[in-house]
Amino acid sequence: MNYGRLALPVLALALAPLLPGIINRTKAVIAGRKGQPLFQLYFDLAKLLRKGAVYSHTTSLVFRAGPVVGLISAAAVLLVLPLGGAAAPVTFSADLIFLAYLLGLMRFFTVIAALDTGSAFEAMGASREVQFSALAEPVLLMALAAIALAGQSSGSPLHGLPFCLSVIYSRLSLATWMHSGPALLMVAGALWVVFLAENSRIPFDDPNTHLELTMIHEVMVLDHGGPDFAMILYGASLKMWTLGALLAGLIVPVRTGNSFLDAGACVLGLFVLAVLTGVVESVMARLRLTRVPQLLVSAGFLSTFALALIIWS
């Protein structure tokens, strides 16, 4: 463990709640509204942490464990998450599996906490969540594998840790984009789909809807309140930061060798990503639920084709 690099998780813990603020502000500007403050989620979290809690008498310990396990998993992911060229505090081979499966653990507990309430609405959201995530997971892993191979084929010899996120992202540079640009563009598209789907954004899910029947993530957490809900909101923003950083590290190939500059560029990329998400949410409606799996499967094909392109180019 490199202690200097612990700055990255700290940065994520501090800035992650800003992302939803940027998205909402973008949407407000496009719609011609004034909109919430950028720091709205921070205020919400502070307020929720001061509140009491109401628990359903149907629920058990599982319901109370859900938010805690979710937040801790989302925070643990930050330990292996690089920001662009800046390496993560912990690096080991195949840590991208660890990242994907920690997010899986978070989802598992969110889902069973939703089922613990016995509410049909929450179970409906949970059912959709597991369906979409089962399809999104192969896309994520394929996309990361494609990025890894792209960095390798552009000349840098294979040494160090294979399939370690920090190594994968540090090898990715402007030269890689020159060499296999179309394939990386496809990968970026696939990761973009994963980012929107896993974070429950339009066109997969509408975080602003008021009808429980149409929601996915929001409906799963209907019964949580107070500090529990704060943990869920915070965990969700960390997850958005994580998946966003994976995409921003790809589309912002700034590799100066200086960790501060690289990380800074990646954070800027993350903010741009949030603005883009806001734009998408402003110009699109959510997809019909039956269309969502088709989009995810297409993203899977996209990333697999990208991998094939990188291998045989």
């Binding site: 809690a53 509410s119 609405f121």
Partner: peptide
Amino acid sequence: RISSTEGTWD
């Protein structure tokens, strides 16, 4: 704080 038990929100 006030921490109460209610039915599930339906």
